[in-house]
């Protein structure tokens, strides 16, 4: 491994009881993460909506052009409230214009929608899932592990109209694994694999499309 670049790390617990005797650094972490406004961090909210609906917002150009992306730039940058101190006006507009010209905004929501509906936005049980197993830990494994089930996000062919129909495929996640993507043995920790399977089993409970939320979504659209 050469190195790891890390940003947007919010994997650790926000629960103060997780840090019974917090160090100064942990105290600061808790105060900052607990102050995060989930409505502001719309990464895990907006894109969880059905993406075709969500993309109407930035597309409401005659009403609020590019507003959503501008708000994201401001909320996600260290700009102390002045977005242009972090990102130039021309840069923002180049980015927003590209979304407009390509029409890709709805498609760009898809991975977030997929993650919210198939795999909950939660950290893995152990960090080892994110890193290759060391040689020593592989050596300790006395037998070859069974190929793990990889929790898949929904991918739909062009023209598929019903996300739920796609999601139902995940009752058998192998259906959505392409052959070249089939995992070879030993690439995942067993614990992480089990968690993936558990996450996949919560598919239908984790959707954002409860009636009250749909009403709220529509109300916001027409505000």
């Amino acid at each position: 491994m050469i190195g790891i670049h890390i940003n947007l790390m919010m994997a650790a617990s926000r629960d103060p009881s997780s840090f019974p005797n917090p160090s100064e650094e942990e105290r600061q972490y808790l105060s900052e993460t607990c102050a995060l406004d989930p409505r502001r961090d719309r990464l895990s909210m907006d894109p969880g909506h059905p993406p075709t609906d969500t993309c109407f917002r930035p597309y409401g150009f005659t009403r609020r052009p590019g507003r959503w992306i501008v708000e994201k730039f401001r909320a996600w940058s260290d700009c102390d409230g002045d977005v242009e101190s972090a990102i130039s006006r021309d840069h923002m507009l180049a980015d927003i214009s590209l979304y407009w010209f390509t029409g890709a905004i709805g498609s760009s929501f898809w991975p977030y929608y997929a993650a919210c509906t198939v795999r909950r936005f939660c950290p893995p049980a152990t960090p080892s899932r994110c890193l290759p197993a060391t040689r020593s830990s592989r050596a300790k494994s006395s037998s070859r592990r069974a190929p793990p089930q990889r929790a898949c996000s929904p991918t739909f062919a062009a023209g598929a109209s019903c996300p739920r129909a796609g999601i139902s495929q995940h009752s058998n996640s192998r259906n959505c694994l392409r052959a070249k993507c089939a995992p070879s043995s030993g690439n995942y920790d067993d614990a992480a694999s089990q968690q993936d399977a558990a996450a996949a089993s919560t598919v239908m409970r984790s959707e954002f499309s409860e009636p009250a939320q749909i009403v709220g979504h529509v109300a916001e659209f027409f505000q």
Binding site: S107, A114, F156, R178
Partner: peptide, 21 residues
């Protein structure tokens, strides 16, 4: 895939594992 210049209207959609692949 699905973003910016890797998008064409009507193309298939990608989740994170498929994007990574």
């Amino acid at each position: 895939p699905g973003y910016g210049l890797s998008f064409r209207p009507g193309q298939r959609r990608f989740g994170v594992p498929e994007i990574a692949d």
